[in-house]
Simulated assay, not measured.
Amino acid sequence: MIDDFVLQTILPTTHDLGGFKVHRTLPSKPRTMVGPFLFFDQMGPAHLEVGTGIDVRPHPHINLATVTYLFEGAIDHRDSIGTFATIEPGAVNLMTAGHGIVHSERSPAGQRAQGPDLSGIQTWIALPEAQEEMDPAFEHVEKAALPVIETPNARARIIMGSLWGQTAPTTTYAGTIYADIILDPGGEVPVDADADERAVYLALGEASLDGVPLAPMTLYVLKPGVATSLKSRDGGRVMLCGGDAFSTPRHVWWNFVSSSRERINQAKEDWNAGRFPKVPGDEKEFIPIPEVPKTVSYP
């Protein structure tokens, strides 16, 4: 029975962003965090119209790190510390907001001409309280630098942390595990019980956990200390995430995350007053603070 190894099942909230959909499982009313993960979005899969693309205008973050990982497509990232980086499938963009950063995400010009594909996962990771106000930073880790564990009919790329005896070079601020697991028909991968908190998410295709079928785009929070295994009959793609449990809660309002509500209110004032830095090469546009944000925590 699924209750033997699953603590919570979190259904997605779906937002249509015009041309593609985003499926969000964190934060949610049932749960705000799994380990350091406090935001979990699946983008697409989608094929956008010729001549179009995604255009996420400059917007701010504080006290968190964003992790972008693509299955298909490409995104041009620009930020207020001067970074320009194009992320492609299998690589990682880790942007640490610290005391404040602004960034934009747009489809590369070369892909717009043919109609861009978009498919992937974007997550936010909470920073430990002692590092919430650190200097902003950006890190791009190439696909070839991430370890891949192979079993018959399965491959698992370690995006962050240590799994199956291998460690990704991606920076972590607290105990973190994050992996992209591709199961061919008949493939199987063990899910170890080492981390405090863990969750699995079926992004594409079909898979089961200890013989229980997983629903697509649903986050399954696993019981602590219970080892399980992922299998697929027809082929699927599963994300595994989690890590150390945080002893203090995090508040989420729009793009702002902090252990302090007062800090979030200050960030709102700073963005409205234009006190955040600009994004070089993308200074003309910005996203205003919404009256009612789609992303909020549930204290």
Rank of each mutant, 00 (worst) to 15 (best):
R263Y: 02
F84Y: 15
T52W: 12
E291P: 01
I75S: 08
R250S: 07
M95F: 09
I287C: 00
E150C: 02
L222C: 11
A65R: 07
V191P: 09
H61Q: 04
Y298L: 12
V102D: 09
E88V: 12
Y220V: 04
G120Y: 04
V189N: 01
L48V: 12
A207Q: 03
E283C: 06
P136S: 06
L214G: 02
E132L: 12
L230R: 00
P60M: 11
N153M: 10
S119R: 06
V22P: 01
A91R: 07
M160T: 08
P190C: 09
L11S: 14
P30K: 01
T167S: 12
L202Q: 03
L204H: 13
G110A: 14
T66M: 05
A195P: 09
D41N: 03
T13E: 15
K29V: 13
Q114G: 14
M217C: 02
R275M: 11
V212N: 12
H77I: 01
E269Y: 07
F256A: 03
V50R: 15
F276A: 11
I159H: 02
L127R: 01
V148S: 08
R275P: 00
A193L: 08
E129M: 09
D55G: 08
D117Y: 13
A91G: 15
A193C: 11
G187C: 07
A46L: 09
G19P: 12
T176D: 13
G165H: 06
S259D: 05
P280G: 10
H251R: 14
A195E: 15
G100F: 00
R78W: 06
V56Y: 10
L209G: 08
M1H: 05
Q131I: 04
I81P: 00
V238H: 10
A245M: 10
R261E: 14
H103F: 08
L222M: 11
V226R: 13
E285W: 10
F286R: 15
A195V: 08
G274T: 03
M134V: 13
S119G: 07
P277C: 07
P169V: 07
E283S: 09
I125Y: 00
P224G: 10
E262P: 00
D3I: 02
S259Y: 03
T9K: 14
L214Y: 00
I182G: 02
V279P: 03
A130T: 13
L146I: 00
W254T: 10
A154L: 02
A227V: 06
D192H: 13
P89R: 10
S104G: 05
A193Q: 12
P190V: 07
G281Y: 05
D210A: 13
L127Y: 08
H103M: 11
H77P: 02
W271H: 06
H103I: 11
Q8I: 04
K223T: 13
A144T: 14
F5Y: 07
T228F: 00
Q114Y: 09
E139D: 12
G161E: 06
G53Y: 10
A273F: 01
V292K: 00
L48R: 04
V279I: 03
E88W: 03
A207V: 02
Q131E: 15
H251G: 04
I125R: 06
S162V: 03
